[in-house]
Design a protein around this nucleic acid. Sequence first.
DNA 1: GAACGTTGTTCGTATATAGGAACATGAAGG
DNA 2: CCTTCATGTTCCTATATACGAACAACGTTC
Lengths: 259, 259
Amino acid sequence: MACALHRTTARILEILEKVASFTQGITLSELSRVLDIPKSSLHPLVCTLAEKKYLIYNNVEERYYIGEKLFILGNRYLSNSDILERIKSVLLEVNEKTKETLYFGVLSDCDVLYLEKAELHSKFRVVSNPGNKLPAYATGYGKAILSQFSPEEIQEMYPIKDLAPYTKHTVKTVDGLNEQLESIRTCGFSYEIEESTIGIRCVAVPIKVQNRILAGVSLAVPVFRYNKEREELFKQLLTDAKAKIEKIIAEDRRNWIYS
Amino acid sequence: MACALHRTTARILEILEKVASFTQGITLSELSRVLDIPKSSLHPLVCTLAEKKYLIYNNVEERYYIGEKLFILGNRYLSNSDILERIKSVLLEVNEKTKETLYFGVLSDCDVLYLEKAELHSKFRVVSNPGNKLPAYATGYGKAILSQFSPEEIQEMYPIKDLAPYTKHTVKTVDGLNEQLESIRTCGFSYEIEESTIGIRCVAVPIKVQNRILAGVSLAVPVFRYNKEREELFKQLLTDAKAKIEKIIAEDRRNWIYS
DNA sequence: GAACGTTGTTCGTATATAGGAACATGAAGG
DNA sequence: CCTTCATGTTCCTATATACGAACAACGTTC
């Protein structure tokens, strides 16, 4: 796939992303400034985006918001493949047995992207929701996914020595991260103690396909419901879920290894 | 908002939508044919879309799939506004009391768009999922939303006399639909009996803001769990939920009426 | 193995679009 | 009331992009 980048296309995507990042909406002029694109160039673009409902233009406050069409298309990403549906049912099984929250996600650049979540309706704080990203090094299954990379590759991914701390328990250095990854490689499990969310611990496993780690499954538990016996149960259920999910992905006709 | 449409922007959106509609992926040439756009014009566009992860290009099968970025942006549509979060918690309350599935959605063109859903993990067939669209006339809360329009306006929305049947119980004519809408206007509730999904009945209420119906809430029940006593409970809970949701939306600073 | 199909890719120019400058509008400030 | 600072909108042309045609690389078919 040879790649001739296209300025206008890149701009449209920038517009969508920028508007989405402004929760309270953004005016045309403001958008022109932050993207460094002339207003007159932006104008027909945002008009078309609004016309097609990718953006919403609020006339009275003269601000653009993200539109419903992105929501509709975005959800196709999951519903197009029944794989994720089946993966979710595996998560639900574990959820029923443990009453704890399960996550399934993949690596997306240096972050981890939540795809599916299985939880009971709880009043507790949530770690995250599908569609969100968190730094891979700050999450249990993020580290599980990272564990496929050598210390050198990790160094490349994080050129700066110090990792931005997500909570006060987040691993702070690349060296520290590499130590943890080594331990994951030997025992097969990844642990996280309040590194992404205060009050929450995680146990996670990597999901391998064709000997490459593509995804991870994590079980998140409030610290006060965590103990050694339950940890054993979690690990057993996760090992079971891991096998099922790897089977689901392996059976799929679609090629998961692309470059 | 004056509108000068932009061809390239419209094309990019067409590409995204078309690729999303092909579950099993689509090749560049195929895309060129269905969109009637030259391959050479498409090429830099899809390259950029793939580069930015709005599409995924599978090298080995030479097919484009919908990418993760759309999923990420799409979910912002919901999470950007805490309104929907709060609306969902209202749905969850009703769900806990009834153990039945709740939907919240809005009108999108002539269809109804599911935004939120509250359900127990059940083995039952699902009516739909957030992000999906169904014909408004085939669903309980779709008809609740439609009930704000006069028979003349409905005629305009559905120029053809016969409505495409979704199931064998779907209302078949515009006149029949108008009769149902009249009854909704008088009693305040909308009923659906296996019109969108065989085996499922719905009771729904319209959500009014500034005297305009903007959305609807629906409670979906398997037919065998439906009876007159429960219907009374459903109607009472829905009336309660309706008031809460209308209050949530009314308190919001954001203008929900834009044109 | 030659002929035809498919795929993606490249190139040059005809054409559509980008963007500076100017304009219309309204709100805030002196 | 005039000025200043926002907003969105329009116009014209320099410029970037679209697209036909030709190409390369595979797979099938006869």
